[in-house]
Nucleic acid binder design. Structure first.
Lengths: 215, 215
DNA sequence: TGTACATCAGTGAACGCGCGTTCACTGATGTAC
DNA sequence: TGTACATCAGTGAACGCGCGTTCACTGATGTAC
């Protein structure tokens, strides 16, 4: 692992702390998990890492830089939740049925993540955010696809299976995403807050029915 | 207007400032309009009203109390946007057509408001919020209906007109609201940010098509 | 109508808070000879 | 292998900031007689 090369800048294999960057990032993720993006406080992260406040500046340009790293991790976690749902889609059944199931899996993963990991969800999608259109290993699970790309892929499958007219494909991800994003937020901050998971799941399924019929 | 009664606490008709409560509230609304809920800063509101910071405590219990008043005003503004759209629904046409048009009007009002008054929208629906189920003059326009109640009424009309099976009515407001809420947020904070109003309107119409078909 | 009094809206000054960030530093580690 | 040196991760102390909020006050206004 430790390859020192005369011609390239020397990379130290260890730091005094061990791996302070990772420790700070993980503290940040924990803070986000509990309190959303505003809870990602640089000083608190250093406190949890057992280090002086300014030590963070060796690893992150500033507080926003740390927050951005936390957000990337949160996006990856959303992608993993989707992948967990996708993995449960049976490979039996018609291509059409499978394609529909995949779209539902992506949506259900999103909704369940929002409910189970509220703080991380709000960190990923709570403030301003954009989506990348190219796979990025940092943002996905095994596949390297981010949440948006999982949705796109599922919709493409729907077209391939003949379950969605190609003419309706453009922009469809924004319609589907809107739907599921809205319910996620209503269930976190809005009037659906406090609704038991079971009812939320039922409502989520009705929502996905609506999208299937409506797209 | 000034009725002084021996048996009830005396109500002064004027204050030194004139009406500091209103001045602070309006400053707060202005701050929210420009920067969302976090921008509603008590000290800044007093600055704009030309008054010492602590003067606010004569009229609001604390900063949260001021924010709550601003939020109520923001909700009323959303309701008014909906009412403006509803007023344009032609009274000709079948009851079914009218009912559909009303649902669309409510949705379009919501989406347009989110785009035109981003800060107020985020103040109304950005953080934790609940909806009242009883009309409250403070929250509505002429009707006193809040945004949620407008949506409910429109869906009821859809059932009455026979365009929505009664069995599907319960919970339908959450499905419809989710859809439109999600797009509103994607167009404010998400990947739809910066999309021109015209395209957003088109996407919004497709979204409402989807809801109509899917409900 | 005039005067003494009570009310209470707004003042002026100060508080503690926790934050992000900068500075000059120190001393453990890796490197060159 | 040993020694002198350079690097740079983490330290310690301090900063200015703007915030919400509390305190004792003052003086314009309305009220009672």
């Amino acid at each position: 692992m430790t390859v020192t090369n005369r011609n390239t800048p020397t990379l130290r294999s260890t730091y005094r702390h061990g791996d302070l960057r990772r420790a700070l990032l993980e503290a940040g993720i924990d803070l986000a998990r509990q309190g959303g993006p505003d809870a990602v406080v640089l000083r608190e992260a250093t406190r949890r890492a057992g280090v002086a406040p300014n030590a963070a500046y060796r690893h992150f340009a500033n507080r926003d830089d740390l927050l951005a790293a936390v957000r990337t991790a949160a996006l990856a976690a959303v992608a993993e939740a989707m992948e967990a749902e996708l993995a449960q889609v049976p490979t039996t059944g018609t291509p059409t049925a499978q394609a529909h199931a995949k779209v539902r899996a992506v949506g259900a993963g999103y909704l369940r993540f929002a409910h189970a990991e509220t703080g991380l969800f709000r960190t990923a999608f709570g403030g301003r955010f954009t989506v990348q259109h190219d796979p990025d290993p940092a943002m996905g699970g095994a596949t390297g696809l981010n949440p948006f790309q999982h949705l796109s892929a599922a919709l493409d499958d729907l077209v391939t299976a003949g379950a969605l007219p190609p003419a309706r494909r453009p922009g469809a991800e924004y319609l589907a995403w809107s739907t599921v994003h809205g319910m996620a937020l209503l269930s976190i901050d809005g009037p659906l807050r406090g609704t038991p998971q079971q009812m939320l799941d039922g409502l989520g399924q009705r929502l996905l029915d609506m999208v299937e019929r409506g797209l």
